[in-house]
Design a protein around this nucleic acid. Structure first.
Lengths: 202, 202
DNA sequence: ACTACAGTGGACCGCCCAGTCCATTCTGTG
DNA sequence: CACAGAATGGACTGGGCGGTCCACTGTAGT
């Protein structure tokens, strides 16, 4: 379907997705109409349906994919190099900073409430995002093990899963209440507990 | 405003809120119309606007309040008596069970995406819910301290905040992916880390 | 029983907005 | 240059749904 796009077509499609992402961040899913997106991206209705034949849902799905990639990207290069305690601290700072800056809108979350979590396409995107995120955390823990900073008998996957959950929760609470205290606490305690595992399990 | 309601009026209002909550859980916020709620609660449109003059948003807010109370209530009496490690385990089981049963819909979450997190009324509800929840967890930790099962120098609020975040995240991931592994990991690790604090800090 | 007001029924309105359609203009390829 | 198909513009439609209005009925208090 995307195979028959010319250079111009690809550019327009990209402009639509990025522009739609902007508008959705500002107005929220419920408050965003196709006309808003048309205005922002300087496109016509026929273009929207030309590139996303299934209509609004298909477009929202494309934006969701875009935003999901963004989440990981915004944490790089730190998330990819969690091989020392200093690196973990730097990553922590980046995460807190990113989500504090994002404020009280959740591009991905709101998107999924609209599309429906049960939609196979939507669910696949979140699952993939979580998998990648957790895998990076697990890799970081393994790197610490390799460096002899953590014992080798800890349950890496469970720790990575718990840490990921803590972050998600911290972000949720930040979105709902506007306060980042929980996100900070989750990250600080999570990393501290990991360190303590090293000492206590020794 | 609620002062001038007769017994019949109060009953009807209650029926509307509870019925609306049901429909919203089934169809989601976006997929629920006032007509759906009318059908479910056997009411007419004029009744809806009679009890909720500001319209749909006011009704959704009332439902949000109802659901928020439900969240705490569903964890009782365990959440209120976290005074032994066994109690903590029982509570853990209840939480996992409750959210696994709830499946992939989030009554509160979806409500807030619709009403808008920035709405003062909506935000107040979440903040109050989080406060109550976290306070119960903190009370539980203090109870363990009082029983001599935990050292007295730990940062109770930070631990409670981190634990709450972990739960929220576990639930979010459960909603998005349909898998409760993260919620379980978050609770298990959270409680285990708390116990370890006792041993390591001793 | 009367009266004031709460409670109820349901027809009606009007707008918003996703989606359709066709006419027109570009773009690349032989 | 020709022409096939992609890209674009924008008027139009249809219905879904929140919200309004008024008429009618029940009910509590004197």
């Amino acid at each position: 379907m995307t195979g028959k796009l010319t250079a111009k077509g690809r550019a327009t499609r990209g402009r639509i997705v990025e522009g739609a992402a902007e508008v959705l961040r500002e107005r929220g899913v419920t408050g965003t109409t196709l006309d808003d997106i048309m205005a922002r991206t300087r496109t016509s209705k026929s273009q929207l349906f030309h590139y996303f034949p299934a209509g609004k849902d298909e477009l929202l799905l494309a934006v969701a994919r875009f935003e999901a990639d963004q989440v990981i990207e915004d944490q790089q290069p730190h998330l990819g190099r969690l091989d020392s305690w200093e690196a973990w601290e730097r990553w922590r700072d980046v995460v807190v900073e990113r989500y504090e800056a994002q404020g009280d809108h959740c591009p991905l979350g709101s998107l999924f409430f609209q599309i429906g979590r049960s939609t196979p396409g939507a669910r696949a995107i979140v699952i993939e995002l979580m998998r990648r995120w957790q895998e990076s955390l697990a890799a970081g823990i393994r790197a610490l093990q390799a460096a002899g900073r953590l014992p080798s008998d800890i349950d890496v996957d469970a720790r990575a899963a718990a840490l990921l959950a803590a972050i998600q929760g911290g972000v949720s609470i930040l979105l709902s209440t506007g306060r980042s205290a929980h996100l900070r606490a989750a990250l600080d305690q999570g990393i501290a507990d990991l360190r303590r595992t090293g000492r206590a399990g020794d």
